[in-house]
């Protein structure tokens, strides 16, 4: 058989790429960005197994830094704080986002609903520094919250330095900031429900609660799963920016999380290798969490996070 009659796949593959070279040239700046600021840092993560030196080679030290981390009593406390705060924000608070969307949908007045939406979406766009500023001011001894408490005859509380309350404050603040914006995913799923379903339910004599339970909630299952998996991916983050701006010496021990620990030992303390080792643990666990829940959700419901 004549060799030339067989299609030469490899040749055409490279020729196709060559014919697209202008496109790859356009993509080049973005690829350079990812190589410089994402791939190089990933290569730098080897620092977890090496001792840092600003000049010359980094000597290999094996698992030294991981041993230090796992044997330090502080790390257990920090990991515990991270898991507790994540649990409160991502699991305990989870129904609030769905309930907010349901409540919004029950409002009859178009103008009042729009007012609630415009106001409740706004905090999502404020910086964490600004949010902390607003909350510190509102929760201070002379702030609005204590003024309301005084009206009901309660003693003033210095909320921001109260170790018992600070985690709840973080959770409520998270709701305050994201309830509006993050419930959009559920609200759009509700308004996408076909009106014929409601008409049929009305003919059958269903009341509002039955409509919510049998028509609206089933439509929210898929967005709930998507949101839940995304939240799991953040589980070891627990919201660094919030904790970083809400923390103070009085409450640090109860809300110190992995990322604030990394910042403190890495950037403030200059212990680059130790901080990198914590980041490596965090990164690997995060990827495993997202990947496994993605596969699990895909098997259960046919919907994963990205495909």
């Amino acid at each position: 058989m004549d060799k030339d009659l067989l299609p030469n796949r490899k040749h055409t593959y490279w020729q196709r790429i060559k014919s697209e070279r202008v496109l790859y040239l356009l993509l080049l700046p973005t690829l350079i960005f990812f190589i410089l600021f994402r791939v190089l840092p990933i290569i730098n993560m080897r620092l977890a197994f090496f001792q840092f030196r600003s000049r010359g080679n980094w000597p290999f030290v094996g698992l030294k830094y991981f041993r230090i981390i796992f044997s330090s009593p502080g790390f257990k406390q920090i990991l515990g704080n991270t898991l507790i705060i994540s649990f409160m924000k991502y699991i305990l608070l989870f129904p609030a986002f769905v309930i907010f969307a349901l409540m919004l949908n029950e409002v009859r007045s178009f103008r009042f609903r729009k007012y609630v939406q415009v106001v409740s979406y706004l905090p999502h766009f404020l910086s964490w520094v600004v949010i902390a500023g607003i909350w510190i001011s509102s929760l201070s001894l002379a702030g609005g919250v204590n003024q309301i408490m005084a009206f009901f005859g309660r003693d003033a509380v210095d909320f921001m330095t109260d170790r018992e309350k600070i985690r709840w404050i973080l959770m409520i603040c998270e709701a305050w900031r994201s309830m509006g914006w993050d419930s959009i995913i559920f609200y759009t799923a509700i308004i996408a429900i076909s009106p014929t379903l409601y008409e049929a339910a009305e003919i059958d004599g269903a009341n509002r609660m039955q409509i919510i339970r049998n028509i609206i909630l089933p439509a929210l299952v898929v967005p709930m799963i998507t949101m839940f998996i995304l939240n799991l991916g953040f589980f070891l983050n627990a919201g660094f920016d919030q904790v970083f701006n809400f923390s103070n010496q009085a409450v640090e021990s109860t809300i110190d999380i992995l990322d604030t620990y990394i910042y403190r030992i890495g950037i403030e303390g200059g212990q680059y290798s130790l901080a990198t080792a914590v980041s490596l643990i965090k990164g690997v666990v995060g990827v495993v969490l997202v990947w496994s829940t993605h596969i699990f959700a895909k098997r259960v419901s046919g919907t994963g996070v990205w495909s």
Binding site: M45, G266, T276
Partner: peptide
């Protein structure tokens, strides 16, 4: 490549060193 870059966070110090 992009999805891996999105999912995997190399962390603060490796970026700081870059």
């Amino acid at each position: 490549f992009l999805i891996i870059m999105m999912l995997f966070d190399p962390g603060l110090v490796p970026e700081y060193i870059v």
